[in-house]
Amino acid sequence: MRVAFVGKGGAGKSAIAGTFARLLGRSRDHVLAIDSDPMPGLALSLGVPSSDAPIPDEAVEERAEGEQGPRYRLRAGLSAAEAVQRYAVEGPDGVRFLQFGKLRGHVATLARSQFAFRQIVAELPADDWSLVGDLPGGTRQPFFGWARFAQTVLVVVEPTAKSLLSARRLARLALAEHPPEALLAVANKVREPADVDLVAQRSGLPVVAAVPWDESLAAAERAGRAPMDAVPDAPAVAAVASLLERLRKGCS
Protein backbone atom coordinates (compact mmCIF):
# COMPACT_ATOMS: atom_id res chain seq x y z
CA MET A 1 0.00 0.00 0.00
CA ARG A 2 1.33 3.41 -0.98
CA VAL A 3 -0.45 6.32 0.60
CA ALA A 4 0.29 10.05 0.77
CA PHE A 5 -1.40 12.49 3.14
CA VAL A 6 -1.81 16.11 2.07
CA GLY A 7 -3.82 19.01 3.46
CA LYS A 8 -3.77 22.50 4.83
CA GLY A 9 -1.29 23.10 7.62
CA GLY A 10 -2.76 21.96 10.92
CA ALA A 11 -5.45 19.79 9.31
CA GLY A 12 -4.03 16.74 11.08
CA LYS A 13 -1.89 15.08 8.39
CA SER A 14 0.90 14.01 10.73
CA ALA A 15 -1.32 12.70 13.50
CA ILE A 16 -3.34 10.62 11.05
CA ALA A 17 -0.34 9.53 8.96
CA GLY A 18 1.64 8.51 12.06
CA THR A 19 -1.26 6.51 13.46
CA PHE A 20 -1.97 4.95 10.06
CA ALA A 21 1.66 3.84 9.69
CA ARG A 22 1.72 2.32 13.19
CA LEU A 23 -1.48 0.37 12.54
CA LEU A 24 -0.06 -0.84 9.24
CA GLY A 25 3.15 -1.80 11.03
CA ARG A 26 1.22 -4.03 13.41
CA SER A 27 -0.12 -6.09 10.57
CA ARG A 28 2.58 -5.92 7.91
CA ASP A 29 6.29 -6.54 7.97
CA HIS A 30 7.68 -3.55 6.16
CA VAL A 31 6.38 -0.02 6.53
CA LEU A 32 8.35 3.06 5.60
CA ALA A 33 6.92 6.30 6.97
CA ILE A 34 8.31 9.29 5.15
CA ASP A 35 8.21 12.90 6.19
CA SER A 36 8.82 15.17 3.25
CA ASP A 37 7.71 18.30 5.08
CA PRO A 38 10.59 20.72 5.67
CA MET A 39 8.78 21.51 8.92
CA PRO A 40 8.76 17.92 10.07
CA GLY A 41 6.32 16.65 12.66
CA LEU A 42 5.71 13.03 11.75
CA ALA A 43 8.29 11.63 14.20
CA LEU A 44 6.24 12.78 17.19
CA SER A 45 3.03 11.26 15.86
CA LEU A 46 4.84 8.00 15.07
CA GLY A 47 6.49 7.84 18.45
CA VAL A 48 9.97 7.72 16.96
CA PRO A 49 12.44 9.00 19.55
CA SER A 50 14.61 10.83 17.05
CA SER A 51 13.02 13.65 15.14
CA ASP A 52 15.89 13.70 12.70
CA ALA A 53 16.42 10.85 10.26
CA PRO A 54 18.00 12.45 7.21
CA ILE A 55 19.92 10.85 4.37
CA PRO A 56 23.57 11.72 4.98
CA ASP A 57 25.54 13.55 2.38
CA GLU A 58 27.95 10.65 1.80
CA ALA A 59 25.06 8.44 0.59
CA VAL A 60 24.54 10.71 -2.38
CA GLU A 61 26.67 11.36 -5.42
CA GLU A 62 26.49 13.45 -8.52
CA ARG A 63 25.58 11.63 -11.68
CA ALA A 64 28.36 11.20 -14.19
CA GLU A 65 28.20 13.35 -17.28
CA GLY A 66 26.02 11.78 -19.95
CA GLU A 67 24.23 9.50 -17.48
CA GLN A 68 20.44 9.74 -17.69
CA GLY A 69 18.39 11.02 -14.76
CA PRO A 70 18.37 13.72 -12.11
CA ARG A 71 21.61 15.42 -11.14
CA TYR A 72 22.12 13.49 -7.90
CA ARG A 73 21.50 9.86 -7.03
CA LEU A 74 22.24 7.31 -4.35
CA ARG A 75 25.91 6.41 -4.43
CA ALA A 76 26.80 3.53 -6.73
CA GLY A 77 26.02 0.13 -5.22
CA LEU A 78 23.56 1.49 -2.66
CA SER A 79 20.04 0.26 -3.41
CA ALA A 80 16.89 1.92 -2.12
CA ALA A 81 16.22 -1.01 0.23
CA GLU A 82 19.78 -0.85 1.61
CA ALA A 83 19.51 2.90 2.10
CA VAL A 84 16.35 2.34 4.14
CA GLN A 85 18.03 -0.38 6.22
CA ARG A 86 20.94 1.90 6.86
CA TYR A 87 19.46 5.36 7.31
CA ALA A 88 15.82 4.98 8.29
CA VAL A 89 15.20 4.99 12.05
CA GLU A 90 13.25 2.05 13.40
CA GLY A 91 10.29 3.09 15.51
CA PRO A 92 7.54 1.30 17.45
CA ASP A 93 5.59 -1.45 15.67
CA GLY A 94 8.58 -1.90 13.37
CA VAL A 95 7.81 1.19 11.33
CA ARG A 96 10.84 2.62 9.59
CA PHE A 97 11.07 6.38 9.49
CA LEU A 98 12.88 8.50 6.95
CA GLN A 99 12.97 12.22 6.66
CA PHE A 100 13.68 14.35 3.67
CA GLY A 101 15.70 16.69 5.85
CA LYS A 102 15.23 19.73 7.98
CA LEU A 103 16.33 23.09 6.73
CA ARG A 104 19.76 23.26 8.27
CA GLY A 105 20.83 26.38 6.52
CA HIS A 106 22.55 24.83 3.55
CA VAL A 107 20.24 24.50 0.61
CA ALA A 108 22.80 22.67 -1.55
CA THR A 109 22.91 19.77 0.91
CA LEU A 110 19.15 19.68 0.96
CA ALA A 111 18.98 19.46 -2.83
CA ARG A 112 21.28 16.40 -2.78
CA SER A 113 19.25 14.64 -0.13
CA GLN A 114 16.05 15.51 -1.95
CA PHE A 115 17.04 13.52 -5.02
CA ALA A 116 18.19 10.58 -2.91
CA PHE A 117 14.97 10.69 -0.93
CA ARG A 118 12.85 10.62 -4.06
CA GLN A 119 14.92 7.83 -5.54
CA ILE A 120 14.45 5.71 -2.42
CA VAL A 121 10.71 6.28 -2.46
CA ALA A 122 10.46 5.53 -6.18
CA GLU A 123 12.67 2.42 -6.20
CA LEU A 124 11.75 0.69 -2.96
CA PRO A 125 10.16 -2.61 -4.09
CA ALA A 126 6.39 -2.10 -3.91
CA ASP A 127 5.68 -5.76 -3.15
CA ASP A 128 7.79 -5.74 0.00
CA TRP A 129 7.16 -2.27 1.36
CA SER A 130 4.20 -0.18 2.33
CA LEU A 131 4.80 3.55 2.09
CA VAL A 132 3.05 6.19 4.16
CA GLY A 133 3.94 9.78 3.28
CA ASP A 134 3.34 12.91 5.31
CA LEU A 135 3.63 15.56 2.62
CA PRO A 136 4.36 19.26 3.02
CA GLY A 137 1.48 21.33 4.31
CA GLY A 138 -0.34 23.77 2.08
CA THR A 139 -0.71 23.64 -1.66
CA ARG A 140 2.58 24.65 -3.22
CA GLN A 141 4.96 21.84 -2.44
CA PRO A 142 3.16 18.50 -2.27
CA PHE A 143 2.72 18.07 -5.99
CA PHE A 144 6.18 19.05 -7.12
CA GLY A 145 7.06 15.39 -7.34
CA TRP A 146 6.55 14.42 -3.70
CA ALA A 147 3.29 12.57 -4.25
CA ARG A 148 4.28 10.50 -7.27
CA PHE A 149 4.94 7.34 -5.31
CA ALA A 150 1.37 7.23 -4.01
CA GLN A 151 -1.38 5.04 -5.40
CA THR A 152 -3.76 6.74 -3.01
CA VAL A 153 -3.63 10.42 -2.12
CA LEU A 154 -5.64 11.30 0.96
CA VAL A 155 -6.59 14.93 1.48
CA VAL A 156 -7.06 15.62 5.18
CA VAL A 157 -9.83 18.19 5.56
CA GLU A 158 -11.26 19.98 8.56
CA PRO A 159 -14.81 21.26 8.24
CA THR A 160 -13.64 24.88 8.14
CA ALA A 161 -13.79 27.34 5.25
CA LYS A 162 -10.01 27.63 4.92
CA SER A 163 -9.39 23.90 5.08
CA LEU A 164 -12.15 23.23 2.55
CA LEU A 165 -10.81 25.84 0.16
CA SER A 166 -7.32 24.34 0.51
CA ALA A 167 -8.78 20.88 -0.18
CA ARG A 168 -10.37 22.07 -3.42
CA ARG A 169 -7.06 23.54 -4.52
CA LEU A 170 -5.22 20.34 -3.56
CA ALA A 171 -7.71 18.20 -5.45
CA ARG A 172 -7.14 20.28 -8.55
CA LEU A 173 -3.35 20.14 -8.23
CA ALA A 174 -3.30 16.40 -7.51
CA LEU A 175 -5.12 15.67 -10.73
CA ALA A 176 -3.06 18.12 -12.75
CA GLU A 177 0.39 16.71 -12.00
CA HIS A 178 0.34 12.94 -11.82
CA PRO A 179 -3.15 11.65 -11.06
CA PRO A 180 -3.13 8.92 -8.41
CA GLU A 181 -5.26 5.79 -8.71
CA ALA A 182 -7.46 7.17 -5.93
CA LEU A 183 -7.89 10.70 -4.62
CA LEU A 184 -10.00 10.74 -1.47
CA ALA A 185 -10.84 13.02 1.43
CA VAL A 186 -10.43 12.19 5.10
CA ALA A 187 -12.73 14.43 7.12
CA ASN A 188 -10.94 15.31 10.35
CA LYS A 189 -12.05 16.95 13.61
CA VAL A 190 -15.62 16.00 12.82
CA ARG A 191 -18.10 17.12 15.49
CA GLU A 192 -21.41 16.24 13.82
CA PRO A 193 -22.60 14.26 10.81
CA ALA A 194 -23.23 17.48 8.86
CA ASP A 195 -19.47 18.12 8.94
CA VAL A 196 -18.89 15.06 6.76
CA ASP A 197 -21.49 16.22 4.24
CA LEU A 198 -19.84 19.62 4.17
CA VAL A 199 -16.44 18.08 3.42
CA ALA A 200 -17.93 15.91 0.67
CA GLN A 201 -19.77 18.81 -0.96
CA ARG A 202 -17.15 21.50 -0.69
CA SER A 203 -14.03 19.44 -1.37
CA GLY A 204 -15.69 17.66 -4.28
CA LEU A 205 -13.97 14.46 -3.15
CA PRO A 206 -15.38 11.15 -1.93
CA VAL A 207 -14.98 11.00 1.86
CA VAL A 208 -13.34 7.71 2.74
CA ALA A 209 -13.19 8.25 6.50
CA ALA A 210 -14.50 10.57 9.19
CA VAL A 211 -12.14 11.09 12.12
CA PRO A 212 -14.02 12.58 15.06
CA TRP A 213 -12.93 15.59 17.06
CA ASP A 214 -11.21 13.87 19.95
CA GLU A 215 -10.13 15.66 23.09
CA SER A 216 -7.84 12.80 24.12
CA LEU A 217 -6.02 12.93 20.80
CA ALA A 218 -5.65 16.69 21.12
CA ALA A 219 -4.15 16.19 24.58
CA ALA A 220 -1.65 13.66 23.21
CA GLU A 221 -0.69 16.11 20.48
CA ARG A 222 -0.21 18.89 23.01
CA ALA A 223 2.05 16.62 25.04
CA GLY A 224 4.02 15.62 21.93
CA ARG A 225 3.10 11.95 22.30
CA ALA A 226 2.11 9.53 19.56
CA PRO A 227 -1.63 8.76 19.65
CA MET A 228 -0.80 5.01 19.41
CA ASP A 229 1.25 5.26 22.61
CA ALA A 230 -0.75 7.80 24.58
CA VAL A 231 -4.36 7.04 23.62
CA PRO A 232 -4.52 3.79 21.59
CA ASP A 233 -8.22 3.36 22.39
CA ALA A 234 -9.23 6.87 21.37
CA PRO A 235 -12.16 7.21 18.95
CA ALA A 236 -9.90 9.05 16.48
CA VAL A 237 -7.48 6.10 16.43
CA ALA A 238 -10.40 3.73 15.80
CA ALA A 239 -11.45 5.91 12.87
CA VAL A 240 -7.95 5.70 11.38
CA ALA A 241 -8.12 1.91 11.81
CA SER A 242 -11.34 1.83 9.79
CA LEU A 243 -9.71 4.03 7.17
CA LEU A 244 -6.95 1.45 6.86
CA GLU A 245 -9.50 -1.37 6.55
CA ARG A 246 -11.41 0.46 3.83
CA LEU A 247 -8.27 1.10 1.83
CA ARG A 248 -7.23 -2.53 2.23
CA LYS A 249 -10.55 -3.69 0.82
CA GLY A 250 -10.19 -1.21 -2.01
CA CYS A 251 -6.67 -2.44 -2.79
CA SER A 252 -7.46 -6.14 -2.84
Binding site: K8, G9, G138, T139, R140, Q141, A161, K162, L165, S166, R169
Partner: peptide, 15 residues
Protein backbone atom coordinates in the same frame (compact mmCIF):
# COMPACT_ATOMS: atom_id res chain seq x y z
CA UNK B 1 2.26 35.92 1.39
CA UNK B 2 1.13 32.33 1.85
CA UNK B 3 1.35 30.04 -1.17
CA UNK B 4 -2.00 28.66 -0.03
CA UNK B 5 -3.69 32.03 0.35
CA UNK B 6 -6.66 31.97 2.71
CA UNK B 7 -6.46 35.39 4.35
CA UNK B 8 -9.46 36.61 2.35
CA UNK B 9 -11.66 34.13 4.18
CA UNK B 10 -10.59 35.30 7.62
CA UNK B 11 -10.90 38.96 6.60
CA UNK B 12 -14.46 38.34 5.45
CA UNK B 13 -14.13 38.65 1.67
CA UNK B 14 -15.71 35.27 1.14
CA UNK B 15 -14.77 32.12 -0.75
Amino acid sequence: CDTNPNLGISLGLGD
